[in-house]
């Protein structure tokens, strides 16, 4: 907290909240749904922050806010220490670029590959047609695609090739931060590893900072330097990757880790003891959002929401680890 005087983080979220109003049923009344609840997060330069959580936890909403696709209800986003609102959208687009999950839906089917990759240059009016063509060719080479794909269309390509095109489009403006939203979950296993390797190489080559959103902890563990675990709109634990497997503190993180099925025969399927249902974000449980599924839950957990407490080099939000409440104990 005190080191804010140093170089500002590449990206910082301060108390971001995003609330939607949803209508239930045909004549139901409108009710608020808080997708992201007072989230603060820092992303240092060159870091790969993995953001994990189940569907509905708010990780994609967070990504949309970071890309400027949705305004937060409250709180601010800082890029290099400057608040996002102050910067205009074009300036933001130069610094933060997305790579989406589904390479079949993220490329406009009516445009040629050259048009898709050069679109950022054209929108920002960078260079003339000839230099844009050259930039596209160079960028395609960087992501491992031959120049002859320039005149082809997305429908002619395989999923892995399309994802390379999406990466080329994201990187052509030389952004500092790339938001990868499940970039490999729609791909085959053998293609997934190619894309993960490519993302790793590009990070080293261009000094990129990644926010890597995924539900696959094995993938996150492989690529990320730090991992933030999200549950019901809150970051419940924020821990360095080195500590993730041996020093994760939150029971939810531990359950997630247990659910990772490594290809080791004979171990069987783990029992996560999570119960089943992810809570409905419209009716979040009282106190700690995780308490109905938590095997350590006590009366305190349903009564009072835990506060973030420092843990290793990050933080955790759990009564078990809060020195002031831990005395009420687990058992």
């Amino acid at each position: 907290m005190l080191d804010a005087a140093k170089t500002p983080p590449a990206l910082e979220l301060r108390n971001i909240t995003k609330t939607y109003t949803v209508k239930q049923g045909l004549i139901g009344k409108r009710r608020p749904l808080t997708a992201v609840r007072d989230v603060s997060l820092k992303l240092e330069k060159g870091e790969v922050l993995g953001l994990v959580g189940e569907s509905g936890c708010g990780k994609s909403t967070l990504a949309k806010i970071l890309l400027g696709l949705e305004p937060p209800t409250s709180g601010e986003v800082l890029v290099d220490g400057q608040a996002l609102g102050v910067q205009d959208r074009l300036a933001l687009a130069r610094r933060i670029q997305p790579i989406f999950q589904d390479p079949y839906s993220s490329l406009n089917p009516r445009k040629s590959i050259a048009d898709i990759v050069s679109l950022p240059l054209r929108i920002h009016g960078i260079g003339d047609a000839a230099s844009q063509q050259k930039a596209v060719r160079d960028m395609l080479d960087v992501v491992g695609l031959p120049p002859r794909v320039m005149n082809t269309f997305p429908s002619q390509m395989s999923g892995g090739q399309r994802q390379r095109v999406a990466i080329a489009r994201a990187l052509i403006m030389k952004p500092e931060i790339v938001i990868c939203d499940e970039p490999t979950s729609a791909l085959d296993v053998s293609v997934q590893s190619q894309i993960l390797n490519l993302l790793g190489d590009l990070r080293a080559e261009f000094g990129l900072t990644y926010l890597f959103i995924s539900h696959n902890l094995a993938v996150v563990e492989h690529l990320a330097t730090r991992v933030a675990v999200m549950y019901l709109g809150r970051i419940v634990e924020d821990v360095s990757s080195d500590d993730l497997f041996d020093a994760s503190a939150h029971p939810y993180t531990q359950a997630l880790l247990q659910s990772v099925l490594t290809p080791e025969p004979g171990l069987g399927v783990p029992d996560t003891q999570l119960g089943m249902a992810y809570p409905n974000p419209i009716d979040p449980p009282s106190g700690c959002g995780f308490h109905p599924r938590c095997r350590h839950a006590t009366n305190l957990c349903s009564a009072q929401a835990p506060r973030p407490v420092p843990h290793r080099d990050g933080h955790v939000e759990c009564h078990l680890h809060d020195p002031e409440t831990a005395m009420f104990g687990t058992d």
């Binding site: 400027g68 670029q97 589904d102 993220s106 009516r110 950022p120």
Partner: peptide
């Protein structure tokens, strides 16, 4: 579709989005 979101994240203006990303499709 995500290509519309991608174009928005690039900084494309609304008329441009409508004309080049949505209309052709």
């Amino acid at each position: 579709r995500e290509y519309v979101a991608a174009a928005r994240a690039i900084g494309a203006s609304t008329p441009r989005l409508l004309l080049t990303e949505i209309m052709p499709n």
